[in-house]
Design a protein around this nucleic acid. Structure first.
Length: 628
RNA sequence: GCCACCGUAGCUCAGUCGGUAGAGCGGCUGACUUGUAAUCAGCAGGUCGGGGGUCCAAUUCCCUCCGGUGGCUCCA
């Protein structure tokens, strides 16, 4: 079974490391503080004879279970060498990924208790001090050993729960639920692929998804070997497209009433509010060191916005309150083999809005608006309802109280949707939807999503003041109206490939085309006059360029076509004298005659309501750098 | 993370059963002055991913490291 989480799930690495020395004696003395608040300690030094010394590193995400396992390992060694005395010596240098001090102290204390309870004479060397020590190693075969406890990925609580909570899938169509096996998928082949992908896992495909070749050949983006995998470089054309997408989403969300904020990209592992969130949703984070302090790179805007909301004063009169940020970037250290082109990245740009609502009615109302907003945003990218599959997931309790609401969601898209129902609440949400894009190699990727979060206001101490003047926790909607921006580009390119397979020229929406109009002078002598046309078009806010290179006309046409330029104008004597243009139109795949004025009018009409940015390269092709 | 494959010119790739390399595209130069998807000719580009080993000789064989890609697992 697969679970789509808003925040991806990370694993705890359980890896306490222990170095054993069977000693004649060990003697240590405490020098000075290594931490601000070390474990209290009153003696200056100590000497222990005939002891098994266990140097222990507590690692990132270790917990008390590891301490119990560790104690068993130590006891096991102690019995083999017949040692009665055990020294637990905190020793950071065994591990590259240490736990925070508070965790370490806790785990070591647990370790000591366990060993005491087993009847050993345990000495625990204090944590958080610089110490000198002298040790005499006995030198027999078992006197020096090292162990790594666990070393396997342990399922976090949320995932363990997954296996015990009942969940099932259905298809919902015209207010009727169907079992997956009973539903007739004819006419809904993509949904079938999505359901297969969801439930029975993936098919092995030996094919690189086609968007990868387009991302390179259109000079949009490419892999950057100089960075970590999944961190892309964007070329001028790609950066232009990406910026336009970002502007459009931001404009749309702000028109919807969200307030744009900006929050840090990294957060303290030791921060109490974040800690419980991380514990519950451990992810594969990037870790950043600032001196000795460890920070994780955000994997969504939740942290930053929740921390703002926690410190803000909201009253019932102001709700719903919407905070928005376009995260550039969010980071998830996805597994190496998972990273393909623009489908999944380790650093990605994610529009992320959180809506704080009073109660379930207000939450539902906003949910519905955001559902429609997501449909409309995707449409602006040329992704229609037929291009993606809808999944709606909820708890049984939510459905029992809100069945009509669920039916409405289905009615709006007017096509069968995948339903997942949980017997009881699972993670933090009671209802979510996603729009999933199924690509040319039959893989699904989530785009838009909205969730109703009933847990995190409590966890982050986010409150609003109600009519009676009392503090209450709001319900929080998580919304990404488009999904990751890179993933939007991926979906557009994959869709273009599908069109190509159906005999339609692949293209991008006009407003996202790096070049909207390409002017091709018939020969060198037409360049000067062509520039006049260029200026006329350019001043209307249309991205136009000119292929002034000394190559053949055919070649220029061919190149404009390979870059998916929507409109190609060849300027020769005829055009210059008559001012009637011959326009090669990619969308209709026809060549039309039209005068300049009407041509511009037609383009401006199509570009209305979309953001504009100028060309991000020279308007003269002869002056352009090649990037692919 | 595991498994597999790959790393040769700016790009895509060929090749050397071990004797330091080729093509197409792109670039540069010149000719051509062209009416809707590749005009012709010439020229310049490479420590064959890094390190180690075997060998008279390694880009080629072996080991190792690094990087990339695909699959599995997982997820936005």
């Amino acid at each position: 079974m697969k679970i789509f989480l808003y925040a991806s799930c990370f694993f705890f690495l359980i890896k306490m490391r222990i170095l054993f020395i069977h000693s004649d004696f060990i003697e240590y003395s405490v020098k000075e503080k290594a931490l601000e608040n070390p474990e209290p300690y009153d003696k200056k030094s100590e000497r222990i004879e005939e002891a098994l010394v266990a140097f222990v590193s507590v690692e990132n995400k270790d917990n008390e279970n590891v301490a119990i396992k560790g104690a068993k390992e130590i006891a096991d060694v102690a019995d083999k060498i017949n040692a009665k005395k055990i020294v637990v010596y905190p020793y950071a240098h065994l591990s590259p990924s240490l736990a925070g001090p508070s965790t370490a102290i806790q785990v070591l204390e647990k370790l000591r208790n366990e060993l005491s309870n087993m009847g050993y004479d345990v000495t625990k060397v204090p944590f958080g001090w610089y110490k000198s020590f002298t040790i005499s190693c006995k030198g027999h075969p078992l006197s020096e050993l090292s162990k790594q406890i666990g070393g396997e990925e342990e399922e976090p609580e949320a995932l363990r729960k997954e296996n015990t909570i009942k969940t099932y899938f259905k298809i919902l169509y015209n207010k009727k639920f169907y079992d997956i096996n009973e539903f007739d998928f004819s006419g809904h082949e993509k949904l079938k692929e999505f359901v297969d992908y969801e439930i029975s896992g993936t098919r092995a495909v030996q094919e690189i998804p086609p968007h990868v070749k387009y991302m390179k050949s259109l000079e949009i983006a490419d892999y950057e070997e100089g960075s970590d995998s999944g961190n892309m470089r964007f070329y001028p054309k790609g950066k232009l497209i990406k910026s336009l997408i970002e502007s459009h989403i931001t404009n749309t969300v702000m028109n919807y009433g969200a307030m744009e904020v900006e929050t840090p990209v990294m957060y303290d592992y030791e921060h109490p509010a974040l800690k419980s969130y991380l514990q519950r949703f451990p992810a594969r984070q990037y870790t950043v060191l600032s001196g000795e302090d460890r920070y994780f790179l955000r994997f969504s805007a939740c942290f930053g916005q929740f921390l703002i909301a926690k410190d803000s004063l909201m009253t019932y009169k102001q709700l719903p309150v919407k905070l928005y940020e376009l995260t550039r970037y969010s980071f998830r250290r996805e597994k190496h083999g998972e990273l393909v082109g623009l489908r999944r990245l380790r650093a990605f740009t994610m529009p992320d809005m959180h809506t704080f609502t009073m109660n379930i009615d207000q939450a539902k109302e906003e949910f519905m608006r955001q559902y429609k907003l997501s449909i409309s945003v995707l449409k602006d990218f040329g992704l229609d309802l037929k291009d993606y599959e809808v999944a709606i997931r909820f708890t049984k309790e939510f459905f029992d109280n809100n069945s009509e609401f669920i039916f409405q969601l289905e009615e709006i898209v007017n096509k069968p949707v995948l339903i997942q129902i949980w017997e009881e609440k699972f993670f933090y949400f009671v209802l979510k939807f996603e729009f999933n894009f199924v690509d040319n190699v039959h893989k699904a990727a989530a785009l838009s999503t909205v969730q109703i979060d009933v847990d995190n206001a409590d966890r982050f101490s986010i409150n609003y003041i109600d009519e009676k003047g009392e503090k209450k926790h709001p319900l929080i909607l998580h919304c990404s109206p488009s999904g990751a921006v890179e993933r939007v580009i991926y979906a557009m390119l994959e869709k273009a490939e599908m069109q190509k397979k159906n005999g339609i020229k692949p293209s991008l929406p006009l407003w996202l085309s790096p070049t909207m109009v390409r002017i091709i002078p018939l020969s060198e002598k037409h360049v000067q006059d062509s520039l006049r046309f260029l200026d006329e078009i350019k001043k209307e806010g249309i991205r136009v360029d000119i292929d002034d290179r000394e190559i053949t006309l055919s070649k220029k046409i061919r190149e404009a076509e390979t870059f998916w330029v929507p409109y190609i104008l060849v300027i020769g004597d005829k055009e210059i004298s008559s001012s009637t243009l011959t326009v090669r139109d990619r969308y209709s795949d026809k060549t039309n005659e039209i005068d300049l004025e009407n041509f511009i009018k037609m383009l401006k009409e199509k570009l209305r309501n979309y953001p504009y940015r100028p060309l991000n390269e020279s308007e003269r092709l002869s002056m352009r750098v090649k990037f692919s």
